[in-house]
Write a protein that binds this DNA or RNA. Structure first.
Length: 586
DNA sequence: GCCGTTTTCGGCCCGACTGTTTTCAGTCG
């Protein structure tokens, strides 16, 4: 059992414990901490267990080490299995209802004897929930709304959907009188691939009157995209937008803005060690300020922005994308954070489709769109013949497409370059869909899996590794095939894939399409650490599809990528040299 | 369950909001 699976089991135990009566919240937290501790361990977990190297890891005491050893050696944690056996499924289901936590779940379960969400819904409609002591009409109504929400939408939204919603409201609010600072916070600011809700922080002058504040809140809750108002006050208002996304707006005095913005940007995982660090330095931090604590007295440490907050804690500024407790606190303290790649560092587009296969625009249209966006090259990667559903090209088609590209390149006369490429299918056995001589005739090759998703993890991994070892494969496309909120990726051991790619000098793309954002940022960093070059690819099927590059950049930044780690920050000459050198080494 | 110049007990990150109460528990980020 590997690191991820053990992390998953420990997290599961934390949830199960929370749903068990009489659990200690500190025991629950200990499992959450242990899961994080295991997740951030360096190296192979089995190896670490064998060599007894877990001892001394913060967060892992003797019990946790025993549990981890058990998991690695037997693929089970008996303690977890017992918890599962004793936890009714309906409790786990209820934990997905917004606003319903473990305490009230247990109360409902005890008092009403419900065994499914459908029975819970009926209990609400029968007015039985409202009669539980400590509950009431509003709570019951909220549970009904929560159930409705669950059935209507899965509770997460794609980044691009949420960003568009948030940006529309941000732009409107920015025009309001009295607004000093205004920023999107939360997981959206951290550029998570999916988000649960939208957080926004707004400041007014410290001397602003309540009329100004109320006017802003009124304006917010009356936005056309607001479907329902779920809370309204002078400092916080909550709404549900037409798309179903929940949104909170916090309104603070401008002097509080940096602290509040920081607090609501999160992540929770980032804040826990940060607060611990503050405590160790005689300070305490919350959404209203950073305070020096002396003899029980708190004095505010003045900060004009988030940079000041981190500096006061003797750290470098931590970009929001990095605030995930993935080692950024330590790196910021050691002044060792990476200079993150930006969209403006990108020089060209690799992996785009045209009407030759399933794209909507001609090669010329795609090239012109790239030029208009300031790029200096375009790598055409239409599908190969196995992808019949996408109008995959035969070797002969590919040759004729190459002639069209040659003509266009002549026209552009060095001002812009189109690369001849392919998104070649990786067949079931790991062979490529084109023979080597066809691949050799191209400038570069992207290879992707589009079929046989149901192989075992071992088979899928070996299939991928064989493709990686092909000397003509330069880039692996969308490494897991996942569709966010749609389907999980095919089972594959990405650690092995990354090792293989590092060994053969093969690149792994970040597919910038907002439904893919694959390879996942948690693995992007691992790949970077092994020296793998990572292109940010739009997988564009139209001119508009080129504009997704910025979502890919968000993921690149979450993966700690610097400009030099991203393949398409190279200019055209350097890129061609990179491909030539790769092939001549084989 | 973890941790320790307050070391083997007694803490553990913090505060607002909501809905229920009439002083507070539960949830969230």
């Amino acid at each position: 059992m590997d690191k991820n699976q053990v992390t998953g089991l420990l997290e599961e135990i934390a949830v199960l414990l929370a749903l068990k009566e009489g659990s200690s919240v500190f025991e629950i937290r200990a499992y959450e901490n242990a899961a994080r501790a295991v997740g951030s361990l360096e190296g192979n977990l089995e190896q670490l267990v064998k060599e007894g190297k877990l001892k001394g890891t913060p967060g892992l005491g003797s019990t946790m080490i025993k549990r981890i050893e058990e998991a690695v050696e037997t693929d089970h944690i008996l303690f977890r299995d017992e918890l599962v056996a004793n936890t009714p499924q309906v409790k786990l289901d209820m934990s997905r209802i917004p606003g319903l936590g473990p305490k009230r779940i247990n109360t409902i379960y005890q008092q009403l004897n419900v065994n499914s969400l459908a029975e819970l819904e009926q209990a609400c409609k029968d007015d039985r929930v409202a009669h539980i002591p400590g509950f009431g009409k509003k709570t019951q109504e909220k549970i009904l709304q929560g159930l409705e929400f669950l059935s209507q939408h899965s509770d997460r939204y794609l980044y691009d959907v949420a960003e568009a919603e948030a940006e529309r409201i941000r732009a409107a609010l920015a025009e309001q009188p009295g607004v000093v600072r205004l920023q999107i916070a939360g997981s959206l600011r951290r550029r998570r691939e999916t988000v649960k809700d939208i957080d926004m922080v707004l400041s007014v002058d410290d001397q602003a009157g309540s009329d100004v504040r109320r006017a802003i809140m009124d304006f917010f809750t009356s936005q056309p995209s607001v479907k329902a108002i779920t809370g309204k006050g002078d400092t916080k208002s909550s709404v549900v937008l037409n798309s179903g996304i929940a949104m909170d707006l916090r309104l603070v005095n401008d002097s509080q803005f940096p602290y509040t913005l920081h607090h609501f940007t999160g992540s929770r995982e980032h804040h826990i060690p940060l607060r611990r660090r503050a405590l160790s330095m005689g300070m305490t931090i919350n959404d209203y300020g950073l305070f020096k604590v002396e003899n029980g007295d708190e004095t505010l440490v003045p900060c004009k922005d988030e940079t000041d907050i981190y500096h006061a804690l003797k750290m470098d500024y931590v970009e929001p994308e990095l605030r995930e407790d993935m080692g950024e606190i330590d790196a910021a303290a050691r002044h060792a954070l990476p200079e993150l790649v930006q969209e403006s560092d990108l020089r060209g587009v690799l992996h785009a489709h045209s009407t030759w296969s399933d794209g909507q625009n001609s090669i010329r249209d795609m090239a012109e769109a790239c030029i208009a966006r300031g790029y200096s090259y375009l790598g055409m990667c239409d599908h190969s013949r196995a992808a019949a559903y996408a109008g995959g090209l035969s070797p002969d088609d590919l040759k004729r497409q190459g002639e069209e590209i040659d003509k266009l390149n002549e026209e552009y006369a060095g001002r812009f370059h189109i690369l001849k490429g392919t998104e070649c299918d990786i067949l079931r056995d790991g062979a490529l869909d084109f023979p080597d001589d066809v691949l050799a005739s191209l400038d570069f090759v992207v290879a992707s899996i589009h079929s046989n998703f149901n192989l075992s993890q071992e088979e899928q991994t070996q299939r991928m590794l064989r493709a990686i070892a092909n000397p003509y494969v330069d880039i692996i496309g969308h490494a897991t095939g996942r569709i966010l909120l749609g389907r999980p990726g095919y089972p594959i051991d990405l650690d092995q894939v990354i090792d293989g790619a590092a060994q053969h000098g093969t690149c792994i793309e970040i597919n910038a399409h907002p439904s893919r954002l694959d390879m996942d940022w948690r693995y992007v960093r691992k790949a970077r650490d092994k020296g793998i070059k990572i292109p940010v690819n739009p997988d564009a099927h139209s001119v508009a599809g080129i504009d997704v590059m910025r979502y890919g950049i968000g993921i690149a930044r979450k993966g700690w990528l610097r400009p030099e780690d991203v393949l398409n920050t190279l200019d055209f000459e350097a890129l061609m040299t990179f491909f030539h050198v790769r092939r001549s080494k084989k």
